[in-house]
Design a protein around this nucleic acid. Structure first.
Lengths: 168, 168
DNA sequence: TATTGTTATACTCTATAACTATA
DNA sequence: TATAGTTATAGAGTATAACAATA
């Protein structure tokens, strides 16, 4: 009895399934490669963003990363405790905190980036190099567009469909 | 103060970030489009797989869909309660159950598939049509390959890196 | 002995609500 | 009044462990 997972019938072309498979594969590798780093692969994303520029605010960063601002608080607590990142009061608005990488954080970033690149390569390894480039380019364009997408509008009728047939 | 989310500095080319953005966007749209369906977008995946062929077993289907076999039990309970899917004892092995779509489930599938296609189109709308095709084709090849991927092997050194700098 | 499916439990992750301090 | 950040709490989702039935 082999353990090899084939695509379920009828789902090979489903965006949800294909995206899910690839995303989970990435998560698995990214997690394996960031053990010990507070926040795992997301701790890396915060650190990377904080190292290249000081994000405008915690909640702005949270939104960019697709997580809740309350989760960001805990994440930053952990990253600050390990001295990889600092919260700095914004000079212009005393409510806001800038997130900046410490020297230590920046020092760790290169190694981390290399590890994540390894995870990335691992996930993309099924494609020849030129196709990897194409895929990444398209995905990046999509991400730039999709981050501010509202869910599709029309979304009410199915409840009736199901309940209608359930009763008698 | 605009609400438009730009890519965080240094993450525009990160596979984890781009994949996450697109996957979350899909999830949002797919969820909106499947309200009322037990299990939401995953209920659809089970139903679709059950309608085209009877999956060999619950746990095989769970693995294909990237969820735990215990979660599959609850999912099928809900889908069976709404009479969209049935569990049938496998003739060859009395431990195993085949998952088959009911007439009602198959009847609902076309409408559901159209809704999911709408969600999919919404997420991909940022790309011209030919690029959408290219992207989907590459993603499908990747998914066929990545579903059986083990996490990247080397994954131990970072704990030391961090603890080393934390202690003294 | 190993595997399928189920159940109960525990754990993790995430979101909600309420609060402080600013604006 | 509205917003940034924090905290506590509740909730959803997921995994773990133990079990019965079967192989």
């Amino acid at each position: 009895m082999t353990d090899v997972t084939a695509a379920p019938a009828g789902l090979q072309h489903d965006l949800g399934w294909t995206l899910g498979v690839v995303f989970r594969a990435y998560l698995k590798s990214a997690t394996a490669v960031t053990v010990g780093l507070p926040g795992g692969h997301r701790g890396y994303q915060v650190l990377a963003a904080a190292a290249r520029s000081a994000p405008a605010s915690q909640s702005a960063l949270a939104q960019q990363l697709g997580i809740d601002r309350t989760v960001m608080t805990y994440l930053l607590d952990d990253l600050e405790r390990t001295e990889l990142v600092e919260r700095r009061p914004a000079p212009t608005d005393r409510r806001t905190r800038h997130v900046v990488a410490t020297t230590r954080g920046r020092g760790l970033l290169d190694d981390l980036a290399a590890r994540l690149a390894q995870a990335e390569a691992h996930v993309l390894a099924g494609l020849p190099d030129s196709d990897q480039q194409t895929f990444k380019a398209l995905l990046q364009r999509l991400a730039g567009y999709a981050n501010d997408l509202d869910p599709v509008s029309d979304a009410c009728a199915i409840v009736q469909d199901i309940n209608a047939a359930t009763s008698p």
